[in-house]
């Protein structure tokens, strides 16, 4: 008649199912989407993270002297969707499993990732290009590492030179 009585009795026998947290650490699955983690070594300042961020949690500002960019991710605006990490081409942004983000109201605005990313320099002419740290070269520049370190202009010139060389060789051999 009372189907719930059975469950109640079972509850009494089985004992509490309460997690020990907060007296013991809580179980966190490795897939958990916690706060974003930023590796400045891998960032190429492409801005795709900012482009896909619906919450406007990411800002990039060029420094006055043009030597780099200030990268900011404000955790109190981030909605933990992980789109930035999904679209980041170099894996500079990842979602950690850290959810211990509780803080007091006084720290409201300081709860952020702040990092200065210097621009890279063209190996030939020294013009400012996207950052070229070793981590980035290893990740996306391995096809032609030398050319990867050039600015678009020098890169173009180098390609043209190569093409010219290729075209030129047979011409010299057949006078």
């Amino acid at each position: 008649m009372l189907p719930f009585l059975k469950i109640m009795l079972r509850n009494l026998i089985l004992g509490p199912s309460t997690d020990p947290f907060p007296f013991a650490p809580a179980k966190t699955h490795k897939n958990f989407r916690g706060c974003a983690v930023f590796d400045p070594e891998k960032c190429i300042l492409c801005g795709i993270c900012r482009h896909v961020c619906a919450a406007g949690a990411i800002q990039l500002r060029v420094s006055e002297d043009g030597s780099g960019m200030q990268y900011m991710l404000w955790h109190n605006s981030c909605v933990f969707c992980g789109m930035c990490a999904h679209y980041c081409p170099t894996g500079a942004l990842t979602m950690s499993d850290n959810w211990h983000l509780v803080h007091t109201g006084a720290e409201m605005f300081s709860n952020c990732i702040s990092s200065f990313i210097p621009f890279g320099e063209c190996a030939q002419c020294g013009a400012k290009i996207q950052p070229r740290t070793q981590a980035i070269i290893d990740k996306i520049g391995e096809r032609s590492p030398e050319r990867f370190l050039l600015c678009p202009k020098c890169k173009r010139e180098s390609i043209v030179r190569n093409v010219a060389k290729v075209n030129h060789l047979p011409a010299e051999e057949n006078p």
């Binding site: 809580a26 959810w99 983000l101 509780v102």
Partner: peptide, 14 residues
């Protein structure tokens, strides 16, 4: 606001 629990949504433990 005295305390802030970031998350979207935060897990119950948080």
């Amino acid at each position: 606001l005295d305390v802030i629990v970031p998350g979207c949504p935060p897990r119950p433990q948080a």
